[in-house]
Design a protein around this nucleic acid. Structure first.
Length: 111
DNA sequence: GCAATGACTGGTA
DNA sequence: TTACCAGCCATTG
């Protein structure tokens, strides 16, 4: 039971990774694509748009921490409700602290 | 098989 | 920090 219709093998991996993101955390499309090891950030977004109806898609945002314009309202509400580290703008997520897969190369050297 | 589309990303000014 | 451009790759018609 993966998703409605027939998601491609690539989509299955994407959905699996997104579903692996714990509540209160968030990751970027690029991060998910890297976890999948195939395709790119655009494929992750396109896949979620078609099969993301069964995964916490709101935990996936752009590289700058802001969700897509068609999700900004919904995603930000879900993230704030889960206690995700939002930025001072309240319209972005602090991936630096929300990232479920901390990268030593992306860690904040000053923080 | 070809061309077009898309919930993106990184570098430069 | 904000804005513009080119690259990337799977899915769709």
């Amino acid at each position: 039971m993966i998703a409605p219709g027939l998601p491609t093998p690539f989509a299955e991996d994407v959905l699996d990774v997104v579903a692996s993101i714990p509540p209160g955390s968030a990751a970027s499309y690029g991060d998910v694509a890297r976890r999948v090891g195939r395709g790119g950030p655009r494929q992750v977004g396109t896949t979620l748009s078609r099969y993301g109806s069964g995964v916490p898609w709101w935990r996936v945002v752009r590289a700058d921490g802001s969700p897509a314009p068609v999700l900004a309202d919904e995603a930000l509400r879900r993230l704030a409700a889960e206690g995700a580290p939002l930025a001072a703008d309240g319209a972005r997520v602090d991936l630096r602290r929300a990232r479920p897969w901390p990268d030593p190369a992306l860690s904040d050297p000053g923080g």
